[in-house]
Amino acid sequence: MMPTIKVKDLRKSYPKRIPLPFRRVEWVEALKGISFKVRKGELFGLLGPNGAGKTTTIKILTTLLEPSGGSAKVLGYDVVSQAREVRRRINLVAEGERTLYWRLSAYENLRYFSNIYYVPKDEAEKRIRELLQLVGLWERRNDLVMGFSRGMKQRLAIAKALINDPEVLFLDEPTLGLDVQSALFVREFVERLVKEKRKTVLLTTHHMAEAERLCDRIAIIDHGRIIALNTPENLKRLVSEGETVEIRVRNLRPEKVKEVDGRLAVSEEDPTRGTLLRGNLDEEDLPRVVEGLIRAGAKVLSVERVEPTLEDVFIKLTGRALRD
């Protein structure tokens, strides 16, 4: 069966400055040849830190950017030479809240997008009503978007992304900056879309729990390369059970951590609770590492064996935490 999304050796470079005649410009490689396939009805995640190449990948797949090399097909259409065919069948939720017309109402926004996605008028009216009810904004349909909370704007952005009933949906950091309740709503909504409507979804996130909970398969991306691709369960098997350790310390500068042990990474910094270190350490190594931390001036508050998460996979593969 033909994959819904097929990415082969995709590359993308950006110039550091706008290239002009007689100007030497350095280029930065944002994608260094990534390949993956997404099946129909799959919820596929691109997980990686900021600047890893997640948004660049989404922009290429949604035809907003052209790749520097390699190829990408969505529903069998090439994203460069058949861009309009791709655009008809997909939609996206871009990162950030300023993606809708704030001076228009929720209804007017959806009406505009139904027009530019060629949704027939009768169908559009029905769909706008359904979508606004689905995201809980029907009662607020005539209110200007500028008066909406961040969560409401994101719910409207999701409704907008479904206005053309797309076969493939691209979500770029859909819960970024949302409060807990709104993020939960978005996650449950995306889950339902895949389970009930059989939509194919490609989602980028740097939120590990989100990727783990939602995605059927995850590609971990770092510095423009896919460093692992599998189901969340199989990815976590890369880290042996019982190896993952959380050490909470105080009075330790983050740059000292690698000097103590390269397998440790800073997972969280909290001024009141201290710094949380995470890593995959053998039973025998643990006392030596704790000693090393104390010698480096740290006050060790707690040491705990924990279940491995995707963050441990990332630490094991890159030697860094996702937040770094």
């Binding site: 035809t63 655009r87 996206l92 871009a94 300023r98 993606t99 809708l100 017309y101 996605y117």
Partner: peptide, 11 residues
Amino acid sequence: AGTLEYSFASP
């Protein structure tokens, strides 16, 4: 306004 991307991503 940040809205160009959505318009240009449409067919």
